[in-house]
Design a binder for these strands. Structure first.
Lengths: 189, 189
DNA sequence: GAAGGCATGTAAATCGTTACATGATTTA
DNA sequence: TAAATCATGTAACGATTTACATGCCTTC
């Protein structure tokens, strides 16, 4: 049997294992945590849950909680072991980046010095914006964002914060160097 | 008229402006430079060049060089100004990341300590691999990878190298801390 | 009873990779 | 002359976002 997991399936199984039960809760968990490095939309989550059920990795049941009709899912034995297989499979290693600010910097030779500086400035503001979002998440991550005894989400957040601080520092330094003429004065186009 | 540029159109126009002429050359330029933060495949490039011609942003002509039959493209006036508009548009700011190693770390509570350490180790090896690729590109980037007077590609590469070094250092530090028990001992699943 | 959030989903459009097909030219 | 590289493209598939539609429940 094929044990391949689509990108979205990977977060879904993990979030189910961490305590989320419905598609809605999975989406909320993602938006509060992994969305900066592994996002998913409703349009992916609901159909994928169906597919995972067909494959026997999750089991659906009507949600016992009163009120709204929801569908709750839980991992099956197969689901658990497939999740664990993926979590320990070093061969699967997607790392994809799409960074428009960096692409603009790459094309810096096509711009005036002031335009490059303006782009770096915008990038710094972007870092600040993301850092603010990250710091809002800190308390939640520190206590475990769904149940207790979840310590690694906080570690991942720390990584994100340090990464953004690195980006910000790099931009400030580079901006200063270009401003001081120590780095490429681009030919006026 | 709509001046929206698809992701692939953005690199294409930029690479044309930097001196690439054919779809093949654009692809090669991308693979030698932006592919780590802005990639594109032949299956995207050739159809997109057609679309850009229909929109009047580029002009095709049979390649003057003898030998193989190629199609060369060059930017039109409209193409030039559309490119410049995008390069100076701070509102357009895609930053997308898909980082499987980080997702595994996020789910670290579902693993044994040794399994987490193994994942961090794999991530360090990944950083080393990318750093090797980057350092291979250095000489090319330093001299201008298509024509002279291209200084920013080298700056973007420096950024990539420092970023990878940051990631590597973070992983080593975290690995040591977990190993020393200073960071979350995960409950055995 | 109106507003706002909870909850689930579908359809369309876009975006992208991969695999395949083809043939020409250059180099060993 | 065989192999490698140049060069262009299509088809199939998979992934993803966005916009839309629906309706229940809670709170004011």
């Amino acid at each position: 049997m094929s044990s391949h997991l689509s990108p979205t399936a990977r977060v879904i199984l993990g979030m189910l294992r961490l305590g989320a039960e419905t598609g809605y809760e999975i989406k909320r968990a993602i938006d509060l945590s992994t969305r900066f490095f592994w996002s998913a939309s409703f349009g992916q989550i609901y159909p994928e849950l169906r597919r995972l059920e067909e494959r026997g990795l999750v089991k659906a049941r009507p949600d016992p909680r009163g009120g709204l009709k929801r569908t709750s899912y839980q991992l099956t034995k197969t689901g658990e072991s497939t999740l664990h297989d993926w979590l320990t499979d070093s061969d699967s290693y997607t790392f994809e980046l799409r960074d428009e600010g960096l692409l603009r910097l790459f094309f810096g030779d096509l711009l005036t010095r002031d335009e490059v500086l303006e782009n770096l400035h915008a990038r710094i503001e972007f870092c600040d914006f993301v850092l603010d979002r990250f710091r809002e998440l800190e308390p939640e991550a520190r206590t475990g964002f769904m149940e207790e005894d979840q310590l690694y989400p906080h570690l991942a957040l720390s990584y994100g914060i340090e990464l953004m601080e690195f980006m910000r520092t790099w931009c400030e330094r580079t901006l200063a160097q270009i401003d001081a003429g120590e780095l490429p004065p681009s030919p006026v186009p």
